[in-house]
Amino acid sequence: MIYNSKMYRAMPIGVVLRKAPGVTRWADWCWRASAVLPGAGPADWRELRREGEAVEYHAATVTLELHGAETEAYLHGLGSAVPSVYVIMREGEGDAPLDVALVTASPYEAQDYTDSAEEIVEKVPMPPGLVAWVHDFVDEFHQDEEFVKRKRGKTRVDLVQDGIGDPRIGKPSDIYASPALKRRRML
């Protein structure tokens, strides 16, 4: 079910995870997000395809949400060579090896999840229908922000130099004191 409201859209997205034999002796299996299924129904690790030892599962269906305030990020993602969504996963609890936490179309939000190293972030190409859906949302709600150069205040702070530190705090004599304080002590 696709949910529409003012400056917000949501769509269920199925996440396909591929399990393949590991390429090193330290990893028995290699897991990666290989595809997304827009408008998918509920799923819980349903096997889709098997090729030798490699297996693809419809691991989960989560909601992809688009927000009007994030259109700059979506536009950035759509402008890349391969428009993609980002699947955020965590180590699985129970029988599932991975839990799908989120799917986002925002490369900025995906980058935020990579900072913690607790989540696994996979970049998955968007199907053409999903590209069109996100592009329509951006066309409807994106507004370019005009660049405003910051202006410096007219106060001249460079005319008076009191030295380093707070003059109210007593200092040993070998530490640099404000020139104004040295003059007062000499008088």
Results as ranks from 00 to 15, higher is better:
Thr114Pro: 05
Ser116Asp: 10
Glu56Ile: 03
Trp29Met: 03
Trp26Phe: 13
Trp29Glu: 05
Arg46Lys: 15
Asp136Tyr: 02
Arg90Cys: 05
Ile88Asn: 01
Leu181Lys: 06
Leu159Val: 07
Lys154Leu: 08
Gln143Ala: 12
Ala43Asn: 10
Arg32Tyr: 11
His67Glu: 07
Ala96Gln: 14
Ala81Arg: 04
His67Asp: 04
Gln143Gly: 01
Arg49His: 14
Tyr57Arg: 00
Ile169Gly: 02
Pro21Ser: 08
Gly163Asn: 02
His135Ile: 01
Arg46Asp: 15
Val157Gln: 08
Val160Gln: 03
Gly153Leu: 13
Ser178Asn: 05
Met126Glu: 00
Met11Gly: 00
Ala110Ser: 00
Trp31Lys: 06
Pro21His: 07
Gln111Leu: 12
Ser116Gln: 06
Gly92Phe: 03
Gly79Met: 01
Arg25Thr: 14
Ala105Asp: 02
Thr104Ile: 06
Gly165Met: 05
Trp31Asn: 03
Thr63Asn: 13
Glu91Ser: 12
Glu70Asn: 15
Val62Gly: 05
Leu48Arg: 12
Ala180Ile: 07
Ala59Ser: 15
Arg168Thr: 08
Arg50Glu: 13
Phe137Arg: 04
Asp28Glu: 14
Trp45Leu: 01
Tyr113Lys: 04
Asp158Phe: 00
Val148Ser: 15
Tyr108Pro: 00
Leu187Gln: 09
Ala69Leu: 11
Glu91Val: 11
Arg168Met: 07
Met186Phe: 07
